[in-house]
Amino acid sequence: MSIKLDVELAGLRLRNPTILASGILGISKKILERVAKSGAGAVTTKSITVKPRGGHNNPIFIQSTKETFLNAVGYSNPGLKAAKKEFEDLSDFPIPVIGSLVGEDAEEFAYLAENIKEIGFKAIEIVLSCPHTPGYGLLGGHGTPEATKEITSAVRKKTKLPLFVKLSPNVMNLGEVAKAAEKAGADAITAVNTLGPGMVIDVETAKPILGFKVGGLSGPALKPIAMRCVYDIYKAVKIPIIGVGGIITGKDAVEMMMAGASAVGIGTGVYYRGMNIFKEVCDEIEEFLESHGYSNVKKIIGLAHRD
C-alpha cells in the first residue's frame, strides 16, 4: 500500500506535514536548504523585525529538565533590509518558505507584510505570542482577541499570501483568539508558541541563568498543553492549524494531527534527534498509518473530535 503524506495547508501543497518552526536555525537561506534536504515539508524563517536586533544576552537557550527547554532569544535578526537580501531569490527552493514577521503594533506588522512582497515567501506567519520580548507578543499586549483582530486585518490588507497567525498557549480563551484571527482574514493558525515564561535560578550564585532571566518553555514538556490548545482551536475555527509544541516522534505528530492539526511544527525536536528529525518523523508517521490501515495522512486530521 502506498501511503500519502502530502497535505494541503491554506492553499500550499506540502510534500509532508512537518514544518521547521520559526526561531530554530532559520538565519539564512543556506541552512534552510539543509533543513529541506533533511526532509521537512516546509520551513519557517527566524522572525523578521523592521530594524536589526541583537536579541537578549546569553544564555538564550537552556534546559531545565530532560524534557524541558527555556529560551529567550529576544528576536535577534538582522532586520527587514537584510532579510530581503538573504531571501531575495527563493525560486529554486524545493519546499515552501514561510516568512515569520513580528512587529510592535498593527502598523509595523502591516509595514513588514507590505515590504517583503518581492521575496518569494510562500506564506507569512505573524507572531502575536512571544512571552519574553518587551514590546512584542504577550508583552506587547498582542494576545487578546481584540489585538489579534486588529493586527491580522492590518496585515491581511497588505498581502495576498496565505497568512498564518501564531498564538500563545498562555491564553485561556484561545478559541476566541483563534476566531478573531479567522474573522480578520487569517488562513491558518499556528499553535502554539512557547509557554510561560519560566525561570531557572542557579543556586550557587542565586542568579537566574537566562540572560533575560525568564524564557518561554518548549520541548516534550509542552506537548500536552499544545495538544489541548490545538484541540480547542479545531473546535473554534474552520481554518487549518499547524500544531507546534513537543513534537519529537512520528507518534507525537500523529497525536497532534488527531487533535486537529493539518501540519506540525518542529523546533526543539532538532535537539533530540538532529536535523534528520524531519525524515524520521515522516517515516514514523508512515509506519503508523500503514500499521493502522490508513492510506492518507489527511484521514487522521481531527480524528479525536469524532463522537
Binding site: G23, I24, I31, E33, K46, V73, T268
Partner: peptide, 17 residues
C-alpha cells in the same frame, strides 16, 4: 555563538553549524 548545541542557527557558516 549563542546556544552552543545546534538549535539557534546563529553560528552558521553556509549550511554548517
Amino acid at each position: 555563538m549563542k546556544c552552543g548545541f545546534g538549535l539557534c542557527g546563529q553560528c552558521c557558516i553556509d549550511d554548517i553549524r
